[in-house]
Write a protein that binds this DNA or RNA. Structure first.
Lengths: 341, 341
DNA sequence: GTGCCAGATGTTAGCGCTAACAAATCGGCG
DNA sequence: CGCCGATTTGTTAGCGCTAACATCTGGCAC
């Protein structure tokens, strides 16, 4: 009258089974797989053969439970529909995958509270570290990280408080594009923005600085819309802007989506670009090179940012707590001048 | 001389601790959290309070190990940089997240062998089910699914072999667009394709059928390039096509990326669209509405496909093995006629 | 031969949780 | 008043793996 055996997950072959078949104990199998240098080469070879033969698949939960390390990294991004973050994700994947780390993706929908909720939810997986977009999280967020001693690397921006980060100066990039427009002789330069996340605001600050320095800053030319960014919105905002300020001679859009909508609307309305109106975007999405005229924009190294951030995090996880040197990596940006300016 | 306590992962608060503080046993805490109906409301309330107070976070690995269920779904998509799959991903997320399921994302890079390798690697997480893009996997792939009795739902296409799937008839969609071009009076209709995955090939089949039926199929007008799809490639392929076949009067691109490149190149070369050449795309990406002229294309319900596939999988996981009725869901498509045709 | 050390392998226990069974509790009814 | 069944809670064991310690082996110095 023995009790029912439990349901086995996976293939049912355990490390113990492999050991049995290879004539060793389970722990030796574990070592053969995860710290090869602690097992005689011949024995290791034999064990690997048996693993192959039995189709053994290690159980990650058991490993995690026993070792208190999950080999998992939580990645928080504001949106799945914005290519910018997907590119960074690809960069992260390219580093974590080969290193044997699992990537958990959390979509915060640009919301601090959702971000916090996601962090709480994903703590159940006890990630070894975090990759976070941006620097401004809810207060409770940083508290949790601190309590649990969770290492984190921040992406897309540069911090001034010692937190490890990989990105670019959004402010400098905003300033660079504004300077470019000034150099092209524009004086009535508008700033069109949507979504209004921290990066968009920092670009705005760069824009303000340059215009103020040049003596032609006009707050009335700043059009900020908290709605999600889209090409439709770019077109609509352009219409509104021109209706209110027909003398405007350049539009700096906070991202390429808005800019593509704006440029298409100009095309529709017969507004000469850049003759009457220069248009600039931000991010250098693939489509930016294929508008009429092609869009001037700021190219950002998203893939590289993701990859570098992942590498930085892995360094921390592997205990290389290099104390010296700032751990802030500035990967810069590049002004792509095309036909629209 | 007691041994060192093991490193604790997470916060260190266990179910046992919660039970202790609430004056109940660990299993009661487990029940309060996961099967509320098995605990007196008052007690449950108290337990939840203690959970909150102690900041208890359940350990998913332990749960998984003990219950042989991972509450995890593996999602395999061919690419992260193609919006089509990201949209589906968003749909999947919208269903799995609220249901308490974790989504593991595997990027197959359009490769059968990588897909198989990913499946093998992710088996370590013992996913409860799979969401797979397309129907054509390596042979070993299906064998593994069968061996482990892993439920899977296939996305983006329709099967004819009884496998549960959610998508649309790629063939019918290809045919519909071709029919549309024929109705607009075109006779020399080219098919421009890249990446050449199974969906692209099926659209090609639909295209062939319609043209053959109309008596104007010319294999020389099929331009198939295995390289990854991009706007640049679309522009290049258009040039090559027109150099070889100046009499061509319509181009059906297998996706919007190619079409956007092609339409931009026409603009650059002064080729009248649709006057001299009609151009059509596939998928209805956001940018398709903002080219000059706006691109005619086939709108596909990607988000809905992802969501429906996830729901279908959850049904299977929750044991509702409804035997009756096909489990193939055709969510259709819509022809978006715009200025380019 | 003895002692010793380094390296290879094994033993034991326990990570945190839940399935299965066991016990306690309660209300209602003969 | 005691017995029944239903409901609520507890006990026990074990999921598969690995940290820590224990043991074994062989080689080498003296």
């Amino acid at each position: 009258m023995s009790r029912k055996p439990r349901l086995r997950s996976g293939s049912g072959v355990t490390m113990h089974d492999v050991g049995l078949a290879a004539g060793v104990s389970a722990i030796t199998v574990s070592r053969a797989l995860h710290s090869p240098e602690r097992v005689t080469p011949a024995l290791r070879e034999k064990i690997l053969q048996v693993v192959e033969q039995l189709g053994y698949v290690p159980n990650r939960s058991a490993r995690q439970l026993a070792s208190a390390r999950s080999h998992t990294v939580l990645v928080l991004i504001p949106s799945l529909s914005n290519t910018v973050f997907i590119d960074a994700l690809a960069g992260i994947e390219s580093v974590l995958q080969p290193a044997g780390y699992q990537m958990l993706i959390g979509n915060t929908h640009y919301s601090d509270s959702e971000e916090l909720a996601l962090l709480r939810a994903y703590l159940q997986h006890s990630p070894d570290g975090l990759l976070v977009t941006g620097l401004q999280q809810a207060e409770a967020f940083s508290r949790i990280l601190q309590e649990r001693q969770l290492p984190a690397v921040y992406m897309m921006d540069l911090s001034d408080d010692g937190r490890p980060c990989v990105g670019l100066s959004q402010e400098a990039a905003g300033a660079a594009m504004t300077r470019h427009l000034l150099q092209r002789g524009r004086r009535r330069i508008a700033y069109l923005a949507a979504q209004l996340d921290e990066r968009v605001v920092k670009r705005l600050q760069g824009y303000r600085q340059e215009l103020t320095a040049a003596g032609c800053h006009d707050p009335a030319l700043e059009w900020l819309n908290p709605a999600p960014s889209s090409m439709q919105l770019g077109a609509d905002m352009l219409d509104q802007l021109l209706a209110a300020h027909p003398d405007c001679d350049a539009v700096f859009c906070c991202n390429d989506d808005l800019a593509i909508g704006a440029i298409a609307r100009c095309q529709q309305r017969g507004i000469a670009v850049p003759g009457q109106l220069a248009i600039a975007g931000f991010n250098d999405l693939q489509a930016a090179a294929w508008t009429t005229p092609p869009l001037s924009t700021i190219a950002t190294p998203r893939f590289a940012i993701g990859a570098a951030a992942a590498r930085l995090l892995l360094q921390q996880l592997q205990g290389q707590q290099e104390t010296g040197g700032s751990r802030c990596l500035d990967l810069g940006f590049q002004l792509q001048q095309r036909g629209s300016t």
